[in-house]
């Protein structure tokens, strides 16, 4: 497995850890709201009870982050990582074409996902212009990432073909 695929697949697994944990907490909070785990008056709550009450409200902001984490960080990135590994090579030396484009996709995708995941839970603390900037940057990076991967992969989507071995190719050239 090439180095870039290892990076993409391992990063996607890290996103899976985050996404599954957030998803699980969201489901628990939906089933038995954390605010009900400790009975106290909302006006005078302190300590753990106050923290649980606050967490129950804040978790809801992570819902769209959960979607970005699982769809982009985990699944899309895993698909790209595996595609970079198994799509047909371009020549007998095993070239995978323009690898810089695929690396560009890796960084843009992860940075874009990070911004898209962090914006909703941080939104209430950020000034409006900064929250909007994070979303615009995240969206732009998603577009760049996917365009870069399409540009990388397009020439590799070809019919089965046999390449001569490099030694024979060089011998013929001589």
């Amino acid at each position: 497995m090439p180095r870039l695929s290892q990076w993409m697949i391992r990063s996607s697994l890290l996103w899976l850890l985050l996404g599954s944990t957030v998803g699980g907490l969201l489901l628990m909070n939906k089933a038995v709201p954390f605010s009900t785990w400790s009975a106290c008056d909302p006006q005078t709550c302190t300590g753990w009870a106050a923290l649980l009450r606050w967490l129950a409200g804040w978790l809801w902001a992570w819902r769209s982050s959960h979607v970005h984490t699982m769809l982009v960080g985990w699944m899309l990135q895993l698909a790209y990582g595996v595609a970079f590994w198994i799509l047909p090579r371009l020549d007998a030396r095993g070239s995978r074409g323009n690898e810089a484009l695929a690396w560009g996709c890796y960084w843009a995708l992860n940075l874009g996902a990070l911004l898209a995941v962090l914006e909703p839970p941080l939104q209430s603390w950020l000034p409006g212009w900064l929250a909007a900037t994070l979303l615009v940057l995240g969206g732009g990076l998603y577009i760049v990432a996917n365009a870069a991967f399409v540009a990388h992969a397009w020439p590799r989507v070809v019919a089965f073909r046999l390449h001569p071995r490099p030694e024979r190719a060089s011998a013929k050239a001589e």
């Binding site: 899976l16 599954s20 489901l27 628990m28 089933a31």
Partner: peptide, 18 residues
Amino acid sequence: GWPLVVSALLQIVAMWVF
């Protein structure tokens, strides 16, 4: 709702173990 707490924990375990 409590069986959903069990469901959430089981799914988290599945993904972390994977």
